[in-house]
């Protein structure tokens, strides 16, 4: 078994009477693409929100590289190395693509009070961010405001922005949603190349073909509970998964 990057123990989140995540135990190993799948309302995005710190868990523990993080703030978790994208894209619309990448990168490298007033257009910062933009295929759009990009490019920009944090764990929330075939193909290649660099990816995906092809392992959630876990082939034929998806 590889080194564990992320682990949850009895992780629970309830909103009033609704239990969105129910006593979830799972691990994510270093260098893998772990798919999180399940029908609508299964608690997939809630899980990402708990890991990235959008809201605190009701109960349970989240361990990131062996460190308990469930009480840490969002920005602290990002600085520890958890990058994420959103189901509905949330680029900084008025900023250019280059500036979108610069925000997390500057966060990563400028952490002292004296750095606050440094010009962010430093040559080495610009060069690094342009390299990242090139990596996600957006170098030619560096000076275009993010709001003018089509959805596929906004999704790639979000991946680039998360990568600028130099994350150990990348949380991608339905990155293929709404993309054309060509855009999906380009994004799939990008994710494979990110995996090849040794980064760990957790991926929420509705498209089963993509999830089966791309992920090393799958965790299936249904009504906040984990109902199956394993390699795609095993999961696909798991009776509880078939039942959850087909409503039997």
């Amino acid at each position: 078994m590889n080194e564990v990057v992320l682990e949850t123990r009895s992780l629970t989140k309830s909103f009033g009477g609704l239990i969105a995540i129910n006593s979830l135990d799972m691990v994510c190993e270093s260098g893998e693409i772990l798919g999180v799948i399940g029908p609508n309302g299964a608690g997939k995005t809630t899980l990402f929100n708990l890991i990235s710190g959008v809201f605190p868990p009701t109960k349970g523990v989240i361990l990131f590289q062996g460190m308990r993080i469930e009480r840490k703030k969002m920005f602290e978790r990002a600085r520890l190395g958890i990058g994420r994208t959103f189901q509905v894209t949330r680029p900084f619309k008025e900023l250019t693509c280059l500036e979108n990448i610069m925000v997390p990168y500057a966060c990563h490298i400028y952490q002292r009070y004296t750095d606050l007033f440094r010009n962010y257009n430093q040559k080495e910062v610009v060069e690094h961010c342009l390299t990242l933009l090139e990596y996600v295929g957006l170098k030619d759009y560096a000076h275009i405001q993010a709001k003018h990009l089509p959805l596929g490019m906004q999704r790639r920009l979000e991946v680039g922005r998360a990568l600028a944090l130099a994350p150990s764990l990348l949380l991608l929330d339905e990155p293929f949603s709404g993309l054309s075939f060509e855009e999906s193909y380009a994004l799939e290649r990008l994710l494979r190349s990110i995996k090849a660099t040794g980064r760990t990816i957790m991926l929420i995906e509705h498209n089963m073909d993509i999830a089966m092809n791309l992920c090393d392992r799958l965790v299936v959630l249904h009504q906040g509970r984990k109902i199956a876990e394993g390699c795609p082939k095993e999961v696909k034929s798991h009776p509880a998964v078939i039942s959850a998806y087909l409503g039997e």
Partner: peptide, 21 residues
């Protein structure tokens, strides 16, 4: 400056800014 860029990011989307560190 870096602080100015961070301010603009916060104005654009404070949740995304938080998640970006």
């Amino acid at each position: 400056s870096w602080v100015g860029l961070a301010w603009k990011a916060i104005a654009g989307d404070d949740l995304a800014a938080n998640v970006m560190g």
